[in-house]
């Protein structure tokens, strides 16, 4: 074996390990948005149904569901961090409005596929 052979060996080994990065669990698309106020579930919104929802628990937050994504578009809290968080759609993603103790969490969604080649 010559020097170049070891270079090939090393390059191939790196190439071979690359697909393993795909095994790092990626976030699956969620199915529902669970809205909680002060820890209590106040609404469960299916992501496949577009709509606009107003929550008045400790202050006003306007939640919009569109194209499988959720966003808080308006809020009367002082910082409006929840509005700035923008659209979320992946399982586990959360929008939080701390002043109103309101959270929108995406749940569900295992999009694993099996296939057979012959």
């Amino acid at each position: 074996m010559k020097k170049g052979d070891f270079v090939i060996l090393a390059l191939c080994a790196i190439l071979g390990l690359l697909p393993l990065t795909m095994l790092i669990p990626g976030k699956a698309a969620g199915q529902t948005a669970v809205v909680k106020a002060a820890g209590k579930v106040v609404a469960t919104l299916p992501l496949n149904q577009d709509g606009e929802f107003v929550f008045d628990e400790n202050g006003t937050n306007v939640v919009i569901v569109r194209d499988g994504k959720v966003c808080i578009t308006e809020a009367d809290c002082p910082d409006e961090t929840c509005v700035k968080m923008g659209w979320v759609s992946k399982a586990g993603d959360t929008i939080v409005c701390l002043p109103h103790r309101l959270t929108v969490t995406i749940e569900g969604g295992e999009a694993d596929s099996d296939a057979v080649t012959r």
Binding site: C12, A13, G16, L17, P19, S113, A115
Partner: peptide, 23 residues
């Protein structure tokens, strides 16, 4: 080809053991 034919990118994971065996 296999991952393209089945539209399953995850099949690429299969390349890791094959690659080391191929070496």
């Amino acid at each position: 080809v296999a991952s393209a034919l089945t539209a399953t990118p995850k099949l690429l994971v299969y390349f890791t053991p094959l690659c080391f065996l191929a070496l």
